[in-house]
Design a protein around this nucleic acid. Structure first.
Lengths: 340, 340
DNA sequence: CTAGGTCGTCGAAGCGCTTCGACAGAAATG
DNA sequence: CATTTCTGTCGAAGCGCTTCGACGACCTAG
């Protein structure tokens, strides 16, 4: 077998200093003379010393590990998910932390396990739902956490999410810039507006305010998610707003149905009607035509989440809600329009 | 603030036993009377005790965490990757271990960091290449590890991989079952056969042996990966083996070119020629027509890898190489054939 | 009836690190 | 020049857990 693990005491002996001095060299929490520091570092390298994570965590009550809680079921947003995860891991490493993977399937119990056992210093939760069952648990945990997504009741939490108000706004700006003068927003189902207030309202407000500002004729309309209802909703909308040429769809599940409806009504996209979706890139890329869409800037969100968590770990104050600027990717579902 | 963390001493006091007794109740390493055990458990629940991971790891030299080392760059095999990861995490949890995510970008240094610091008890590496730079490092680490994939020099390692011999065999069986009598294998580029021996040869052997066994007329042919060379290779092959109706392609990069070549030679798939690929499902699904293909059983592989790692952690002997049965998914690129 | 086992429990010695208080000696202050 | 303030370093006390050896109490077999 190998000789035993190299400990900090070995390093101290080798460098001719005390154990605490080595520790301070490593942590920088007290000033150490340049010469001593250099000698210690040399010994560390010479012996191949790696501090024992467990011992460190026991003594300092800090593990330098954060939990990344995500849904591992095979969904369709894999690429987006991966982008988040990559950003989180990269940022964590940049802050000298490792990442423990916790699946959402474990539910609240999983959070409790890793937090209470002091396995992790803090948590980043992805795929947070409006009424997420993990949220109450999170509140009573004594570890800091950051959510990606915005639950209905976000009090006492730190959240990062897309700025939906801004998302509504840039959709309008995009259409207006192409010359469209009469636009509409097809939003979430009615029930969402009534109950899970939040992102749906924010998008709608951004849409309406900006349309008004730009002097557009704007309509909004909740939108159910089954093909038949979508069909009648779209038909009604076109009747109500003849000459409508710009459409924003903020409803992932309904997007395909809307496209079908337009097609069967004889409206071509983008020749007759330009369509912008607020949805994952994946979906936008898969549709025909490929949709101009507003997407979540995953890299940004991931990095921001980790930054916020680090701040909380350092006891710094952080804003409860961080909203990130949406990005509109122009594809082939929108085009210029001039009165004909 | 909250009252301090509940320690094992608190539990012991509450239950009226010694600290060591509580520890033994938890670990089961010494027999404890049923009544004592029950009392201790009740106290644990009553106080909400969670053992401190760091303390445990320091004292026992076991962290109950394994590392999952994977490439987080956005590749095209995301779904496959995810399937692996999911399987690994699930199996790890089933064995009471957590999973630390380490990105392959960190290279050998990353392995050293998590292993030497005793952050993890062992490692599972994904996406292992033939000449993987992490392999030498792995050998000198004192932590056990399992590789998913088979490097050229696997001595001293534990690997899990697809059984390529069997993969070659079931491709032939599939074609033979459909009535094909003259078949060919388009394999890896020549240079791969010469140098990175291993999976390429294994597939070819499986293919040939089975063809012989079934009395088929079988040909094999290395295959480069650029469109032009593929074109001439396919043309030559059809000249050499007129009446060829079954083709197996074991070359991810060349698959698309092969399809193009067949098309431009006036051969329809599957009407004139049936084609089976050995490639990720992703690719098979994306091609036109969708390819009948042999794919890696990711769930199985992931689970197996963890099982092997657990065995090694328990000092049990494990086979150096575990080969898993390939699965052939029949899609629309293969069809029955009868002499015309 | 006694020598030798088992069983169930306890006490104490670490595991390797961080951090607090102490303290010489040097530098700055009056 | 006396006194205070830094600087740089050390020793030792934990952090919460596992595990080893010890030890009564009880059983069994000769």
């Amino acid at each position: 077998m190998k000789k035993d693990v190299v400990t900090i005491a070995d390093v101290a002996r080798h460098a001719g200093v005390s154990v605490s001095t080595v520790s301070y060299v490593l942590s920088g929490k007290r000033s150490i003379s340049a010469t001593t520091s250099a000698r210690v570092r040399a010994s560390i390298r010479a012996l191949g010393f790696h501090p024992h994570a467990g011992a460190r965590s026991l003594a300092s009550n800090r593990s330098s590990i954060i939990a990344l809680v995500l849904p591992l079921r095979q969904g369709m947003h894999l690429p987006v998910l991966m982008q988040f995860a990559t950003a989180v891991v990269t940022s964590a490493r940049a802050n000298d932390h490792d990442v423990l993977l916790v699946t959402a399937d474990e539910g609240p119990a999983g959070l409790r396990r890793v937090a209470a056992g002091a396995i992790v210093d803090g948590l980043v939760l992805m795929d947070v739902e409006m009424h997420d069952p993990r949220v109450p648990t999170l509140r009573q945990l004594d570890r800091p956490s950051v959510l990606i997504g915005l639950p209905v009741d976000s009090s006492g939490l730190t959240c990062v999410d897309l700025d939906f108000h801004q998302a509504g706004a840039i959709c309008v700006q995009h259409l207006a810039g192409l010359g469209h003068r009469r636009v509409a927003l097809l939003g979430a189902p009615q029930v969402v507006y009534e109950r899970d207030t939040g992102f749906a309202h924010r998008t709608r407000d951004g849409f309406m305010q900006t349309a008004q500002l730009l002097g557009l004729d704007a309509h909004t309309q909740p939108c159910e998610e089954d093909a038949a209802t979508v069909m009648s909703t779209v038909t009604a909308l076109l009747g109500r707003a003849p000459g409508l040429t710009g459409l924003v769809v903020h409803n992932e599940a309904a997007v395909a149905h809307v496209l079908d409806a337009l097609r069967s009504l004889g409206k071509r996209v983008p020749e007759d009607i330009s369509l912008v979706a607020i949805c994952p890139d994946e979906l936008a890329e898969r549709s025909h035509p490929r949709l101009s869409s507003v997407q979540i800037p995953a890299d940004d969100v991931g990095r921001r989440a980790v930054d916020l968590l680090m701040a909380k770990l350092d006891q710094r104050e952080v804003p409860p809600i961080t909203l990130l600027a949406p990005v509109l990717t122009s594809r082939t579902s929108t085009g210029p329009w001039t009165a004909r």
